[in-house]
Each structure stands twice: as structure tokens, then as C-alpha cells.
Design a protein around this nucleic acid. Structure first.
Lengths: 195, 195
DNA sequence: TATTATTGATTGACTGATCAATCAATAAAA
DNA sequence: TTTTATTGATTGATCAGTCAATCAATAATA
């Protein structure tokens, strides 16, 4: 065989290239040629390994969400109290690599794609549920379940909203300011319940 | 068939058709043929009146935002106190037609398109600024300017976030629940400042 | 060691489909 | 007749996907 065992190398290179191209482009309307060129291989090879453009894009979304998930798991392990864990979830959502313009553009593109691709939608629903349940699980330790659900709903919406607003680059909000806004939301509501 | 004075009729029909097709499709990746067919005319006529697909789509975004703007203006006029005006802004953001699945899909598509089309981006930035300034203007009557800016930022993010989460149709939130969440956000923060 | 068979990796060239855009032609009104 | 409305037919570009052919590394064989 030639350089045997190229498959995993190429698959990773193509997925990474797809992320970059999608980010640049700000949309999933990218060509296999662009992705392949970015990865330094021929378009034919991309088809050889992924079968179709859709499969390559789906794999890209999957890997992207997997990475985010890993970050969350690590951050949660490092935090001790429920309140710290809540902060950890927020911090990860806005950490540097998630907040890079290309990453934000890619997220937006994934959301749009979810309207058409059932599989992409499934991945994003899983992400949304995970975010929600991570929040609820820790809020429950601090307030009644009903309130926990409601506050989690609001916090998740705020996180996603801060994201989408970043994508317009009109009034850029810093990572710290985004974290502070979401933290304030939690604090204000938890205090309101105690008071 | 040529009845004279068809231009405004056709333009409106095509823009409305574009909205429907985009909503169905959940993306701006729609063809002139689809739009024209939906409007009951030939693709050639669409080109005749709009010159290009991009211009038709831009006009569609423009009309869409214009309608939202009109709703806001009307609602603001009907409200008296600053607090009522804040509620009016929130209510309009989630009113029935804005919350229809196709409308949400279209919004999402516009956000994604803004990554590529400078003109679409300009329109959305104007929308974002208007929402922000409507909120700030009325918050200023209830709290210090600095806090008003911060609270407006959070409320706007929450509104957009509730939108984007609706697009996934995973845990659908009712109009009332969305309004309640945003209202709670305002109330909690305003109370926190007074207390 | 030299030869050969085998096979994964890789690509250039091609195909078929799709689509935006153009244009020439026609029909109705002014 | 001149202008406006309208369309069918066509063009040119872009792309996803296919395929036959080539390359290079290994392993079996002589």
C-alpha cells in the first residue's frame, strides 16, 4: 500500500478544513473543491472518504459539538459547588475558541442548516438539551425545581442570544461582558428567590 | 394579458412568495424558479422586475424588517408609561406572526445570509440597534443610564436567543412563556437596583 | 537480492444536473 | 405605433459525484 493508514489523517484534515472554510464563508454553502483545496487534497479524495458532501458536513458538525462537549465535561469536573459549576458552564460557552468570529459564523450556519438537515437538527437539539440539563442539575441545588427550569431556560436563551448578536459584529461584546451578563442573570434571579 | 401598472403588484407578489418559500425551505438557498412559481409568474419576470436574485432577496429582508418596525411603532404609541412601553416592545417581538415557524426560519436564514451579504448585514444591524435603543430609552426612565445599557443588552440577547431556540423545535416555548421569561428578566434586574 | 503481485491512496478528466441570467418574440394596452 | 407585460427557449457557469488510470509501499516469491 502507499502511505498506509492515511484515512484517519485525511478525515481529520478534511473536517478541520471544512470548519475553516465554513467559518470564512459564514455559511454551509461551500464547495467540496474549496474544502479539499484547503485540506490540500483533490475533491475526488474527499468524496472517496466521505461519500457525499452532506456526510462531510454532518461529520463536521458532529466533531464540533463533540469538542464543545469535552470542554464542558472538563470544566465541570474542575468545579466543586453547584454555583461554581454553573459558572463553569457559562465560561466554557464563551471561552476564546468558541467566541472566535469564524466559530460564531459556523454555529450560525449550523443552526440554519438544521432547518434542512434532520441529522444536523438532531445534533443541535442534543446540544441544547445538554446545556439545559447541565444548568438545571446545578440550579436544583440552589432553588426549587420549577424555578430551576425557568431560570435555565432563560440562561440558555441568553447564551445563544449573545452568540447570534456577536455574529452581526455591530456592537461587539467582549467575552468578559458576555459572561458578566449571564452571571448577573443567574445572580439576580437566585437572589430574588431568596429575598 | 398585459394590464398596465402591474409592476407594484408583481413586486409585492414576488416578495411575499419569497418569504413563504424561504420560510418553507428554512434557508435563503432557494431558486428564482421556486419563488416565481409560488408567485404564479415566470422566472424571467422576476428577473425583469428585480434584476437579480440578490436584489429580490435583499428587498425581501427589507420589507420584512419594515413590517416589524411598523408593528413596534404602533405598539409603542399605544403604551403610556416607560414600563408599559418596555412590555410593548417585548410583546411585539413575540407576537403571533413573528413566532410562526416559517418566520423564525426566515429570520435565521437572514442572520446566516448577513455573513455574506453586506446589505443584509446592514439591515439586521439597524434592527438590532433599534431594538436596543427602544429598550434603553425606556429603561433610562427607570434606572441609571449605565444599568439601562446593560439590562437592554441582556434583554435583547434573551429575545434573540428565545428565537433561535424556537428554530430547533426541540422544547417549544409558548409565546406567553417567552414573554414571561423576558419580563421576569427586566423585573428582576429593576427590582435588584431599587432594593 | 531481485522480481512481481497486490492494494490503498490519489488524481485528472468527465458527466449530468441545476440555476441565474439573457433574449427574442408575442400580446395587450395607450 | 410605441410602450409595457410576459414568457419559452437558450446560454454559460458552477458543482457534486463518478471513474479509469497511476502511484507507491509492502509482502510474497524466486
Amino acid at each position: 500500500m502507499p502511505k498506509v493508514g492515511m484515512e484517519p489523517v485525511r478525515r481529520k484534515a478534511l473536517v478541520d478544513a471544512a470548519m475553516r472554510v465554513i467559518g470564512d464563508h459564514g455559511s454551509l454553502t461551500v464547495t467540496m473543491s474549496e474544502i479539499a483545496k484547503e485540506a490540500g487534497v483533490s475533491p475526488a479524495l474527499a468524496h472517496h472518504y466521505f461519500g457525499s458532501k452532506e456526510q462531510l458536513l454532518i461529520e463536521t458538525v458532529r466533531v464540533h459539538l463533540q469538542r464543545l462537549r469535552d470542554s464542558v465535561v472538563t470544566a465541570l469536573r474542575a468545579a466543586r459547588t453547584p454555583r461554581e459549576k454553573l459558572s463553569a458552564v457559562i465560561r466554557v460557552s464563551f471561552q476564546a475558541d468558541q467566541f472566535a468570529p469564524e466559530t460564531i459564523a459556523a454555529w450560525l450556519a449550523f443552526y440554519a442548516e438544521a432547518q434542512r438537515s434532520e441529522e444536523t437538527r438532531r445534533f443541535l437539539v442534543i446540544y441544547a438539551r445538554r446545556l439545559h440539563s447541565n444548568l438545571v442539575a446545578n440550579l436544583k441545588a440552589l432553588c426549587p425545581v420549577g424555578d430551576a427550569e425557568r431560570i435555565a431556560e432563560g440562561a440558555a436563551a441568553m447564551i445563544d442570544g449573545l452568540y447570534i448578536r456577536q455574529s452581526l459584529r455591530s456592537a461587539p461584546i467582549s467575552t468578559e461582558a458576555s459572561i458578566a451578563l449571564t452571571e448577573d442573570y443567574l445572580t439576580a434571579h437566585l437572589n430574588a428567590l431568596e429575598g
